[in-house]
Every structure is written in C-alpha cells, then in structure tokens.
Design a protein around this nucleic acid. Structure first.
Lengths: 212, 212
DNA sequence: CATTTTTTGGACCAGCAAGTCCAGAAATAG
DNA sequence: CTATTTCTGGACTTGCTGGTCCAAAAAATG
C-alpha cells in the first residue's frame, strides 16, 4: 500500500493534456450546473457536455461523482468572491459600497434564478466536504465585509459602536436570502431591498430613505 | 371523460379511513423530509415510514412522486407561518417583535441544519407547482411583516418615511439567508445577527447597540 | 345478505444512472 | 525504435427507483 485512504488525494494527472481535460470537465460541469434546471445532474450529462468518456471521468476523479461535484464546488466557490472584486476588497467609501451592491445585483440578475452554490449543495449535500467548502466561502466573504465596515469606522464614516463582524454576518445572511428568494420568485427586488436596507443601516441617522 | 386533466385534482378519498391514510402519508413524509439527511427521498422510504404500500401511495397521489411531494410542500408551508403565531400576527410593540425574533431563532435552532421548504424545493424543484407554493408562502410572510411595520408606524414607534413593504422584503430575505447559513454552518448566529440588525434599523436613531 | 365501491398489499416491470473493466490510442522516455 | 506510462473510449454490470397491475380485504350501500 502506498498511501492512506483519507480524502480524495489520489491520482494527480501528470501531463499537460491530462490537466487540461480535468479542468475541462470541472468547468463544463460548472457551466451546466449554473445554467439550467435544478434537476438531478448525471455523469452522462457531464460526459456529453465536456466531450469526454466515462473512463476519463473516473480516471480523473477516482472518488466518483462525489469527488467531481466537490471539485466543481471548490471551483465555483472561488468564482463567487472573484466576481465581486475589486469592489469587495476595497469597501472604503460609500461609492464603493454602492458599486459593490450594484455588482451583486447585476450578477445575480444576469445569472437568473440559479445559485451555483445552492445547486451544488443540493446535489452534493450528503458529502462531508461540501459543507466545508460553503462554510469556508461564507467565512471569507464575511471577513471581507467586516473589513470594509471597519475601514469605514476608521474613517469616521460609520459610528464606532457598531459591531462590525455581527453586521457583516447580517449582510451575508441577507445576500444569501436575497438570492434564495430570487430562485423562487425570479425577482431581484428582495436582494436589492435587503442590501439597501443594510447599507442604509450602516449610514445611520442623517440619511433617510433609500440609498439610491 | 369526466373532467379536465389540469393539475392533480383527481381522486379525492371518500371515506374517513381514506382521508386518514392520505394525511398519514403526508405527515410521515414531511417528518422524514424535515429531519434527516438531505439526500434523495424515495417512495420506499415514505412507504416504510408511513407503513403503507406502493398501491396506496399511487392510489392517493395518482400524479406520483411529484404530486405527493407537492402536497407535502403545501402542508409544510402552512406550518411555517403557523409556528410563528401568534407573534407574527400581532407585531404591534417592540416586545412583540422581540418575541417573534426569539420564536424564530428558537424554532430553527431546534430544527437544526434543515430547512423543510429548502429540502422540498431541492426535491420537487422541477415541478411547476413547487415554486408557486414557496412564492405564496413568501408573499404571505412578507405581508404579515409589512403589516407589523405599518402598525408600528401608525403608533409612532417607527418613522413614517420608512418603506414598509421594502423593509419587510429585507426581513424575509434576511431570515431566509439566516436559515440558509444555518444549514451550512450549523450556527444560528447569522440568523440572530440579521434579525437584530434589521430590528435595530427599525428602531432607528436613539437605540444604538444590539436589541437584547 | 348481496353488491358495489373503496382501500390495501405486494409482486412485477422498465429505465436510468453510477461505477467497472479492459483494450486501444497517444504520449513520453531512454 | 522499443517500452512504459498516461489517456481515451465505450461496452457492460449492478442496483435502485418510480411506476404498473391485479387480487384480496374491508367498508359502505340498500
């Protein structure tokens, strides 16, 4: 025996061709998961879309469907934060906060009634790693928002007694819920409402009404 | 032919025994959906839990799994609002708002990492009626919250210029997201954070800090 | 009690999807 | 140019799951 059975750390493709195929599988599966119906995703779907064979699927993901879906989840989780940059990394002015808000709304409006991570969780819900991926993403997300709040506090734009991490949690929950509602209703109104309301809350007294 | 094929309005059980069995199936399925793993739910699971046979399942739900799951969704949707009563129906004082908040947090903490409607949507995601059920629930929910905000405005406890329906939307999205995060992290902190933050927002200037 | 309808049980079927296996193509190495 | 490793294709197996069917039990009906 040449290694422990823990996790999926086996079979790393060697050649560039192999790596490319593996990546093609992940990205093809991600695209298919992202747009389309929330119904069950089959390996045959992925196979057809990515132009691969069953052999390749199990060659690059010996753990089978679970491992493949987990890899897609990791890939998609990376995209979520990337798509919010550079706004999310520099929430240092009200203008930046509004741009971030707009970027979020625009992104999810374009994406339509489909949350990539939500689908992944629904599909790979049972696997141990799936929740870990989402948890990591949410933590990073919250950290970014909290940093933005603290930066505004340091600049005297937000009252100092506000609990930054806790308010950041509220933002994360609000965004998640807004997207969730979007999935059911097809409308981004709720997402906009919760973002505007929370930003309004940050601005505190002296700026009544909506933020736009 | 004795009726249109629209929807699932066929085969209404006549006898009391039949009705009881039908209800037993729905409640058993709901219980199983609520607690447990988010994995695929099979008719055999439901059959085993409810102590019924395949014949009965299709006798009472000729539309098959879809119709059964939809019936469960309707049943569960009804429970969601019921569980928040009487608080949700009488948000006429800050004390009532806090009791509502506590009831929500308590309920979801007890329920653990599992959103009944979320599971239903994941399972019956493809069917046309599933989204309709959730949409109706969210609309009613939002209406209740908006009514509470307006009542507080009428009582002079919330500033009149606040957009009640829009803020209610923010609450709904926030709650949904809080529960969603709970599903991944197992912690109700985010749900508490978003509720406290939004209630704090409602109270407006003059009551800084958390609401508890 | 006879009859008709409803309810119940479970054997059975068909299709689908995950996973296995192996042979052949294509690189890579020496 | 061999030899070895990696990559690719697809046939095949296996198990599960939704759904069908029918006969028997149990109620209602009159």
């Amino acid at each position: 025996m040449d290694g422990p059975e823990l996790g999926y750390r086996r079979h790393v493709p060697i050649t560039a061709k192999g790596l490319a195929t593996r990546q093609r599988i992940i990205e093809g599966a991600a695209t298919h998961l992202r747009g389309g119906e929330p119904g069950q995703v089959t390996l045959d779907d992925i196979r057809a879309i990515t132009g691969t064979s069953k052999g390749q699927l199990f060659h690059y993901f010996p753990g089978g469907k679970d491992e493949l879906l987990l890899a897609v989840a990791v890939y998609e989780a990376g995209r979520v934060l990337d798509d919010q940059q550079p706004h999310l990394g520099a929430l240092t002015s009200w203008a930046a906060w509004l741009r971030w808000r707009d970027a979020l709304v625009t992104r999810y409006r374009a994406q339509g009634a489909h949350c990539p991570l939500g689908s992944l969780l629904a599909q790979a819900g049972g696997t141990p790693g799936a929740y870990e991926v989402v948890r990591t993403l949410l933590t990073q997300w919250r950290t970014h928002v909290a940093a933005g709040i603290e930066a505004m506090q340091a600049a005297g734009q937000i009252r100092a007694e506000l609990d930054a991490p806790r308010t950041a949690s509220a933002f994360i929950a609000g965004i998640q819920g807004g997207v969730e509602v979007l999935r059911s209703t097809g409308s981004v109104d709720d997402l906009e409402a919760v973002l505007d309301t929370l930003i309004d809350y940050l601005r505190g007294p002296g700026s009544p009404g909506a933020t736009c």
